[in-house]
Deep mutational scan, measured.
Amino acid sequence: MTEYKLVVVGAGGVGKSALTIQLIQNHFVDEYDPTIEDSYRKQVVIDGETCLLDILDTAGQEEYSAMRDQYMRTGEGFLCVFAINNTKSFEDIHHYREQIKRVKDSEDVPMVLVGNKCDLPSRTVDTKQAQDLARSYGIPFIETSAKTRQGVDDAFYTLVREIRKHKEKMSKDGKKKKKKSKTKCVIM
C-alpha cells in the first residue's frame, strides 16, 4: 500500500485542523484551538488504489514558523489553505509557496490551493482571484467548507493525484537520464 505524506499549511484560523478532522473523523470542530502540530493517518481508496494518507496539520501562528522547514522537508505534497473571508490569509499563500519551493529546492512541488469556509456569506476573496492565482502557479484550486464537508475529500484526493503525477514524471525523467548515460565512448 502506497503511503502519501501530505502537509496542510496556511495562516492561523483558516480551518486547516477543521478540514483535516472532517476528512479523518467526519465531524466539524467549530471551536478554535490553535494547533502546534498534529499528525493523522487514514486509509482510503483513490482511483481504485488503496493508500495510506499521513497528514500533518501544522501551526499557522507566526511564533511556530521555525518548525516549518522541518515538516516541509518531509512532506510530499501540500494543501495551501486560505479562508475566503480573510484576504490576508490569501496573500500569505505566496509566502508559504515560496518557502516550500526553497526548502524542497524545487520549482515543481505537488500543491493544491484550497479556499476554505465557502459556506460563509462574508467572502472577501473572489473565486476568480483564487483561480487566477492557482493557474499562475500551475496547481489545482478547490473551494471547501469544513463545516458542510463540501470539497473536503476532493481537496485531499486531488493532492494525492498531483503527487502521483509528480512521481510518474520524475521516474520518466530518471529513465531518460539513465538511457543517456548508457551511451559509451570508444577510443581507438
Rank of each mutant, 00 (worst) to 15 (best):
E62H: 07
K5A: 05
E37A: 15
E31I: 08
E37K: 15
V7F: 06
E63Y: 05
Y64A: 04
V9E: 00
P34Y: 04
T2R: 13
V8W: 00
L56E: 14
Q25S: 15
Q22H: 08
I24C: 06
A59R: 01
L19D: 12
Y64K: 04
G60V: 02
G48E: 11
H27P: 03
V9R: 04
C51D: 10
V14F: 10
E49N: 11
I36N: 00
E63L: 04
E3A: 14
P34H: 02
D30S: 08
T35F: 01
L53P: 06
T2F: 12
A11E: 11
I36P: 00
G10L: 01
G15K: 03
P34T: 04
Y4L: 13
D57Q: 00
I24Q: 11
K42H: 11
V45G: 13
D30F: 07
L19W: 05
V8C: 08
L19N: 14
E62P: 11
R41D: 04
E31K: 04
V29Y: 15
G15I: 01
V29S: 06
L56H: 13
N26V: 05
D57Y: 02
L53E: 06
G60N: 03
E37F: 15
L53W: 08
S39R: 13
I46R: 10
V29P: 08
E62Q: 08
Q25G: 15
G15P: 02
K5M: 03
A11L: 13
G60M: 02
E31Q: 06
V9T: 06
S17R: 03
G48Q: 11
F28W: 12
L56M: 08
E62A: 08
L53D: 02
T35K: 01
K16W: 00
T20D: 05
I24N: 07
G48L: 06
L23W: 12
Q22K: 13
V45C: 12
A18P: 02
G15E: 00
G12A: 14
G60I: 02
D33G: 02
Q43T: 12
G10W: 01
V8R: 01
A11C: 13
V8M: 06
A59Q: 02
L56A: 08
